[in-house]
């Protein structure tokens, strides 16, 4: 199953997504890791950012189509379902 890789930025806690050796704040821009090998490689590469104390809590999660499979990751990607004005879903 395709996956994405996420973490929190250390300095402010912002949720991040892995994109080709870098991080983005946007779930949509996060890289789809289509194979288990690609996912493992991304997770391994991300440890460099952990070691450099830039991010914390890296982990992979599964996708269903383009969206996260689990409700938890949907909420993390967009913001609290009860506060559409907050989190990444908020119109800036």
């Amino acid at each position: 199953m395709a996956q994405k890789l996420t973490a929190n930025r250390l300095i402010d806690g912002t949720v991040l997504y892995w994109r080709a050796g870098e991080w983005t704040e946007s779930f949509a821009e996060g890289e789809v890791l289509a194979s288990e090998d690609a996912a493992k490689a991304a997770l391994a590469a991300a440890q460099d950012f952990v070691a450099r104390n830039l991010v914390v809590g890296t982990y992979l999660f599964e996708l269903k189509g383009e969206a996260p499979l689990k409700e938890r990751e949907i909420i993390r990607a967009f913001g609290p379902s009860v506060r559409p004005d907050l989190g990444k879903q908020a119109v800036r």
Binding site: E71, P80, S81, V82
Partner: peptide
């Protein structure tokens, strides 16, 4: 689940 890392399910929308 709207905020908590340990949650299994949302509680606030049900309460609402």
């Amino acid at each position: 689940l709207d905020y908590c890392d340990l949650a299994n399910a949302r509680s606030i929308p049900i309460a609402q």
